[in-house]
Amino acid sequence: MRRPIVGMSYKTYINTIDTATKKADELVEAAGNEKSVEKFIFPSIGLIYPVAKAIENSEINFGAQNISPYLEGAYTGELSIVSVKDIGGKYVEIGHAERKNTFYETLDMLNLKVKLTLEQNLIPVICIGENERIEDFDKGKKFFQAQIDAILNGINNEYLSNIILAYEPEWAIGKQKAADSSYVHMIHSMLREIISEFYGNEEADNIRIIYGGSVSENNVSEIVDHSDVDGVFVGRFGHDANNYQQILNSVKKLKVGN
């Protein structure tokens, strides 16, 4: 059985050490000793280390919202994955819509970052999604096939189980409402079908696919209540520890059963 996931990003909404560590302390308390659900947070880059110390020895892991596509060298202003590893980070978020649309990251660059992350034995959380709702299934599938083919170009089957796909429809990010659950379920099944066609049934069964885009304590149950949805990638609705706890409990109940 694929281990369920609750991930969360702070983007740059939380930018001071005091606020970030206080919220991290609250999340640790909310998560308690829960072990059946995989949990991680992505602080803003300047706060990775203090948050890492705040969640040390807890059941929550952490990572970076972005990395340089290169291990080291003359790349001023970039975050090296070496630094992420050195402070105990386990995850790297790659390809969020804002990185592509605001900072013009290309699919080729995302491919470099995924390869580097896997080479360094960290887990890439790869964001993929469409900028408007898909009405034509075949056209939608071709879009995702091209996106997945480019981002995972040259990556061997053996690495697939180390990858997390985060389906985030760009038109639902930061909105009051998530995409409706039936639509989310349809896209997740499509993505797993594409992985099966590209890599095989076993790889498709092993890879974890989570949903992100206005996930809240009110809609999480209907979103994850499907065999192809392995969890959620939470934004601002999870910054409140009580909301986070409700989301975590809902995922655990539906995916683990208790």
Rank of each mutant, 00 (worst) to 15 (best):
A97F: 14
K177W: 07
K90Q: 09
K141R: 15
M190Q: 02
T19W: 00
N157F: 04
V28C: 02
K53W: 02
I41G: 04
K255C: 00
Q145S: 12
I151E: 14
T102D: 05
A54H: 10
V28Q: 06
Q65E: 02
L160K: 08
Q176K: 11
N153F: 09
I194P: 01
N249W: 03
I247K: 13
N101V: 14
A204K: 12
D240Q: 13
A178W: 04
G129C: 06
M190S: 03
G212T: 12
K53D: 07
G213S: 13
G140M: 03
V51T: 08
Y159I: 01
N218H: 09
N218Y: 10
I164T: 10
I173F: 11
N61L: 08
E29I: 06
I45H: 05
D149I: 02
E132I: 15
G154W: 00
N111L: 10
D240A: 11
G213L: 15
I164D: 05
S36L: 03
E202M: 07
E56V: 15
K139H: 00
I163E: 14
E130C: 10
R208W: 08
I148D: 03
I155F: 04
E26F: 06
L118D: 13
E170C: 09
N153P: 10
I87N: 10
Q145R: 14
I194H: 06
V256A: 07
G129P: 03
P50H: 09
A166N: 00
E132S: 10
G32E: 03
V234D: 11
P50N: 10
G213M: 08
D180M: 14
H226I: 12
I94E: 01
F144W: 04
P50T: 07
E132W: 06
N111F: 09
S189R: 09
I247M: 05
W171Y: 14
F103K: 05
G212L: 09
K253F: 01
H226K: 04
V220C: 06
E202S: 12
Y159C: 02
